[in-house]
Write a protein that binds this DNA or RNA. Structure first.
Lengths: 232, 232
DNA sequence: GCTACAGCTTGACATATATCAATTGTCATA
DNA sequence: TATGACAATTGATATATGTCAAGCTGTAGC
């Protein structure tokens, strides 16, 4: 691993307050890798050998059952994924693939567990990260179980608008068929849902979405801080 | 808090390896309470004042949105709930109510965080518990997103059978309408789903279920360790 | 034993969502 | 520019699931 990479990683909140010897131990067996789009990083069921830290690009977490596939989450920088599997030394529950050109740090899971056992600051950081992931997943479950497909899309668009700093226009971060899977519907239904939202001020051109006045959409979507606010 | 209660709590894996002073500090402001059935313990959105540890009985976690309600999980002894909210000092994302007579230990959240910062063994135990909860939730999400209502019921019944030690007969741990909500369907549909499973060897009498030969049901349900095995 | 109530079930019907098939659009590449 | 591959869209239709209303069933209280 290059010194510049190590310097960059050291800045992460996950390693904040960690002692230098522990950090060295953690990064000795680590490596940084850059992947092109559409590369399978992880396959569910495999043993968890590395904790992944996403630096640049984006990664899709998805799951299979009985020949079906569903997108579970989109991971964005800077964030870890499959932390829980690393901690428990258990097999992956989800698969992962890159969506675009992506730079990832791989830390050997056994080192993560060993340093975790010795470095208190790291343990605290891991718990904070894991609790954050857990709460994000609870919100996602509430979204799926309490809302219709149209309501999920409406709220998703409002969240994306928020993410773009409240700008009227933004670009969808993944293909529509993946978005459909993430929102728990088919691509065909997503297409129709977008059309249904046109009278609510949602304009769409390819992956480009414009919501000039979100008022009507908010009335329809009824966003809640307990589902849609990433800070909560 | 009575000495016998303190003794009992001390046995929990969550407090295993923790120093006595830290344990004392954690339990000084704690109390044990017994609740009758149908008592609201927690309301989503409220600040998180206590970490709850369920000792006896059972607790339903549920969520609201726009006048709708959905059962998110059933908590059984011995297990914590709303650990993530405690760690992050964030509002509850789910509500909780007792389903039967229930004994719960309440630990002040601020004490949990303080001791967590000082006691490494406790930090490790918290992470293990949180990672477990996270993985349970991932499995639940996969169940909801990848399976039809009938498949969810079939797999649920097989999991309950497993929980009963593989016994042919067992009792549903909650009312059918709650089970329906947990499985993401209406009570009417659950009723029909049970009927559909009759040819697969599922007999039902009230809350009592008998699956003499699970072979056909397994063929239909296609259970997966990555969704249905609580140990994974 | 009755009664009242709540939960469960059933049937008829409505709606949401999925599926299938065909078409259009888009982009990379020859 | 033409071509092929693939995503997105559209319309027609099928299926899953929800809603409503009625009846059933068990049980707690009298």
């Amino acid at each position: 691993m290059r010194d510049s990479d190590i310097m960059e990683i050291r800045q992460l909140s996950l390693f904040d307050g960690m002692s230098d010897p522990h950090f060295d131990r953690l990064t000795r067996g680590a490596y940084v890798q850059t992947f092109p789009p559409q590369v399978d990083l992880i396959h569910e069921g495999d043993p968890c050998d590395f904790l992944h830290i996403l630096f640049e690009g984006s990664v899709e977490l998805f799951a299979h059952w009985n020949g079906r596939e569903s997108t579970m989450a989109l991971v964005r920088p800077v964030s870890t994924f499959i932390l829980a599997a690393t901690i428990r030394d258990a097999p992956y529950l989800m698969s992962a693939r890159t969506l675009e050109k992506t730079r990832i740090v791989l830390l050997p899971s056994s080192d993560v567990r060993a340093v975790f056992d010795e470095d208190h600051a790291f343990a605290r950081a891991v718990v904070a990260e894991l609790a954050q992931c857990y709460r994000a997943l609870v919100k996602s479950s509430k979204d799926i179980k309490l809302r219709s497909a149209l309501e999920r899309l409406a709220n998703y668009l409002l969240r994306q608008r928020q993410r773009a700093g409240g700008a009227a226009a933004f670009t969808l971060p993944m293909e529509k068929r993946r978005l459909a899977s993430y929102l728990g519907m088919t691509a065909e239904n997503l297409s129709r849902a977008f059309k249904t939202l046109q009278p609510y001020g949602v304009e769409m051109d390819g992956a480009h979405v414009t919501i000039s006045d979100p008022g009507d959409l908010i009335t329809l979507a009824k966003p809640s801080v307990l589902i849609d606010d990433p800070a909560q």
